[in-house]
Simulated scan of single mutants.
Amino acid sequence: MRIDPYSLELFIAVVEEGSIARAASRSHIAASALSRRIADLEAAIGVALLIRSPSGVQLTEAGQHAYSSARSIHGQLESMAREVQSMSGQIAGVVRLHANASAIVGFLPERLTLFKTRYPLVEIALTEQISDEVIRACLDDRADVGISASTKAHAGLDSWRFVDDPLMVVLPPDHELAQADSLSFAEVTRFALVALQAGGSLDQTLKEHADAARMPLNVTVTVNSFDAQCRMVEAGLGIGIVPTSAASAFAGSRNFVRVPLRETWGSGRCLHVHAPRKSSRLKAVQALIDTLIDTLIDEG
Rank of each mutant, 00 (worst) to 15 (best):
A275T: 12
P120D: 09
H154Y: 15
A24S: 08
V233L: 12
I29G: 01
M1C: 05
R36N: 11
S150M: 07
V47E: 00
Q90T: 14
F115I: 05
R71C: 10
M80H: 13
I29N: 00
S27C: 11
A48W: 00
R71H: 00
S245N: 05
V273E: 04
A125C: 06
L193G: 01
K116A: 11
A62K: 04
D141K: 12
E17C: 13
Q179R: 13
A23T: 05
N224P: 00
L34A: 06
A153K: 15
R161D: 14
R231Q: 15
K207H: 14
R26D: 02
E176S: 14
D174M: 09
A210K: 02
H65S: 11
Y119E: 09
F256T: 02
A23Q: 04
G156F: 10
A92G: 04
R96Y: 05
N224T: 12
E263N: 03
S148K: 03
I241T: 06
G300P: 01
Q197S: 12
V242Q: 03
T220M: 08
T264F: 07
S55K: 14
A195Q: 10
S19F: 08
T127F: 05
V47G: 00
A21Q: 08
S27F: 01
H154S: 02
A48Q: 12
I130M: 03
R190S: 08
R262S: 13
N100W: 03
E78Y: 02
D158M: 11
D40W: 02
E234F: 08
G200C: 11
N255S: 14
L171E: 02
A210M: 05
T220W: 01
E78G: 00
V15D: 01
G106K: 06
A251P: 03
F226E: 08
C138R: 05
N218D: 12
M232H: 09
Q197M: 08
Q85A: 15
A62M: 04
L10F: 08
Y67A: 00
R277M: 07
I289D: 01
I3W: 03
A92R: 15
E234N: 09
S253D: 07
D165T: 06
H175W: 05
F250V: 04
I29R: 08
E110N: 09
E83I: 10
T113L: 14
F162C: 02
T60E: 02
R190D: 11
E128P: 07
E42R: 00
S131N: 05
V257I: 10
K152E: 14
A103M: 01
F107R: 10
L282R: 15
M1K: 05
R111A: 13
D140Q: 15
F250W: 09
R190N: 12
A21P: 00
